[in-house]
Design a protein around this nucleic acid. Structure first.
Length: 295
DNA sequence: GAACCATGATTAC
DNA sequence: TAATCCTGGTTCG
């Protein structure tokens, strides 16, 4: 589920559970055999993220760069120490079936690879498998810098200087704000959900040329992205509805209540009752409320 | 079991 | 703009 918040969570997970540990690196699928051989046996130092790019640093100045694309995913597992260090908790078994073998009481290492495992990282206490990524490669520090130089400011990289100013600068374009927000060279980490939801929350028409937005609107948009995405990192899911816009503000948020417009085409806007619209724009589905986000 | 679709991005035409 | 990468969940028949 890879918008920027997921990648930042992955980065933290790598630091927490593999940081400072020697890692055996393989490519069961074979497509990353050369890269795996370069990393095998090194100590993993830390994970970091910029937008949807994940960087995992190893000793000797080598960095693993991963981009999950639309359907890439990591899965993790390990012993009690691994689960204790994990920032995303013990691995959940999704779609568990009764005929699956029971989890062994004692951790004896990673399971047989299932499907196309591009990379497998194994330490004494746990493992990580990568499947379906669109990018998986080993980079030098200079190459990492080159990748990052192509990216806009990331709402989740709070330590980076001048981010709000960079956001303003890079959104000075005639491109529609809805398309501009998905352009990773303008702002990094925003995907289809965050763009739709933050534009709704800021009452901005997604088709409006970005450069027509005034400074206050851009400020509010940036602040909202920072807030929404930080919440996404904390909670491990995207929830953009304010409690007041949910049936019972006290109750846990059901998936159906999590968004204002994303995947709600044809349904009534939670705030104004207008019918939520969808259109294919630049190859992606764009959702908005004509009532709340008109001019 | 097939078909379709997705929180992404690059490449070719 | 379309094809591609090639996973996994959901929907269809």
């Amino acid at each position: 589920m890879p918008e920027g918040h997921s990648i930042h969570r992955l980065a933290r997970q790598f630091t927490d559970v593999f940081g400072g540990r020697r890692v055996a690196v393989t490519s069961p699928q074979g497509r990353f055999a050369d890269g795996a051989a370069r990393l095998d046996g090194r100590t993993l130092l830390r994970g970091s993220a910029h937008g949807k790019q994940l960087f995992v640093e190893f000793d000797g100045g080598l960095h693993l760069r991963v981009h999950l694309g639309l359907y890439g995913a990591f899965s993790f597992g390990g012993d009690e120490q691994f689960a204790g260090a994990s920032s995303i908790g013990a691995p959940r078994r999704i779609g568990e079936r009764e005929d699956l073998p029971a989890e062994p009481a004692v951790y004896r290492g990673p399971p047989e690879p299932v499907g196309q495992v591009r990379v497998r990282l194994v330490t004494e206490h746990g493992w990580a498998d990568l499947r379906g990524a669109s990018v998986c490669e080993v980079l030098t520090p200079a190459e990492v810098d080159a990748v990052r130089a192509r990216l806009g400011p990331d709402p989740l990289r709070t330590a980076d200087e001048g981010r709000a100013a960079a956001f303003h600068r890079r959104l000075r374009t005639r491109t529609g704000i809805g398309v501009a927000l998905m352009d990773q060279s303008r702002v990094a980490g925003v995907g289809n959900i965050y763009r739709a939801e933050s534009l709704f929350r800021c009452r901005i028409d997604p088709l409006r040329p970005s450069a027509e937005l005034d400074s206050g609107q851009l400020d509010r948009l940036w602040d909202d992205l920072c807030e929404l995405m930080a919440a996404g990192v904390r909670e491990g899911r995207i929830v953009t509805t304010d409690p007041a816009d949910r049936p019972d503000p006290q109750l846990p948020v059901w998936p159906e209540q999590a968004y204002y417009v994303y995947q709600r085409a044809g349904r009534e806007c939670r705030r104004c009752g207008s019918v939520v619209q969808v259109a294919e724009v630049a190859g992606r589905k764009l959702y908005w409320c004509p009532g709340c986000q008109g001019d």
